[in-house]
């Protein structure tokens, strides 16, 4: 109940910046259109590159634009707030609260993600659908399977961003780790190029890393590349990363808490 309240407040907090949201939607749409023309040219020369056809590729571009803010590929969201509070020392108050830090910040980030999915996710996809021929999930079940995969991906992304922010307990400045994480996420999420286009060895590595859950795995569900029992495999993959990474966060937090106490609060 409390976590729902945190999530809905976070949703409302982001929804106050209407101008910024509209500007972001415009920018996402422009970048989406640019990449579509490039991919149309690529798939005209090689009609089944990476096992996609041109409609899959164009759809993938718009799913990518939709996921940038929803999954927070470049970073941001509630872990950034925590990093600022670690630097200022306000994090002590977070430790006092009768709820766990991890659950509190995760709820806030899910609230943010819900807002970004409905605005920065949905709007550019509608624009893309008007400008280009897109492929939509084949049936209601596929819609549902995709809709479940997205929040799971947000949890994985949250845990990674959280780990980067938590380094601030030791480094006091989390810019370095955050930059490196953003770099890895930008490439290994499949936002730079679809992971299916990578040379085979690199592709296998990329598809096993947690960033594959950001875009490639949900996109393959949407496009109907992952069907039937494979979907369960995809879910198991996302959930496994979520559990491992959240576990790592909990561990690091525990050590950080002791460190804060030693410093004298």
């Amino acid at each position: 109940m409390l976590h729902t309240a945190v999530a809905s407040r976070s949703f409302r907090r982001y929804s106050t910046y209407v101008g910024a949201t509209l500007a972001g939607i415009f920018t996402n749409s422009v970048f989406g259109a640019i990449m579509c023309f490039v991919y149309i040219e690529v798939w005209a020369a090689n009609p089944d590159a990476g096992g996609y056809d041109v409609t899959d590729a164009v759809t993938y571009v718009w799913l990518g634009q939709a996921m940038i803010m929803t999954v927070a590929v470049w970073g941001g969201g509630s872990p950034d707030d925590l990093a600022a509070r670690i630097k200022s020392g306000d994090v002590v108050i977070d430790f006092y609260r009768p709820v766990g830090i991890l659950g509190w910040y995760l709820a806030a980030d899910l609230g943010r993600a819900a807002y970004h999915l409905l605005t920065r996710g949905l709007a550019p996809t509608l624009v893309g659908g008007l400008l280009f021929d897109l492929r939509y999930p084949a049936d209601a079940l596929t819609w549902l399977l995709f809709a479940i995969a997205v929040p799971l991906a947000v949890v994985v992304s949250f845990a990674l961003r959280m780990l980067a922010s938590l380094t601030a307990f030791w480094l006091l400045d989390d810019v370095g780790p955050r930059t490196l994480l953003g770099f890895a996420a930008l490439f290994f999420s499949g936002l730079t190029v679809p992971l299916v286009l990578l040379p085979s060895l690199l592709r296998d590595v990329a598809l096993a890393l947690p960033w594959a859950t950001f875009l490639q795995v949900p996109a393959d569900i949407w496009l109907g590349k992952t069907t039937g029992l494979e979907v369960l495999g995809a879910y198991a993959f996302i959930v496994a990363w979520a559990v491992v990474l959240l576990g790592a966060c909990a561990l690091v937090l525990q050590r950080a808490e002791r460190r804060v106490v030693v410093q004298g609060g």
Binding site: E41, A49, L186
Partner: peptide, 28 residues
């Protein structure tokens, strides 16, 4: 760290183009 990060980040665009060329011989 930020300089190296910015160098890598902006270079990623070209890595992307280079990977596209693993799938096609020319672009436009």
């Amino acid at each position: 760290m930020m300089a190296v990060g910015s160098f890598l980040m902006t270079g990623l665009d070209f890595v992307g183009i280079w990977i596209l060329f693993g799938n096609v011989d020319d672009l436009g």
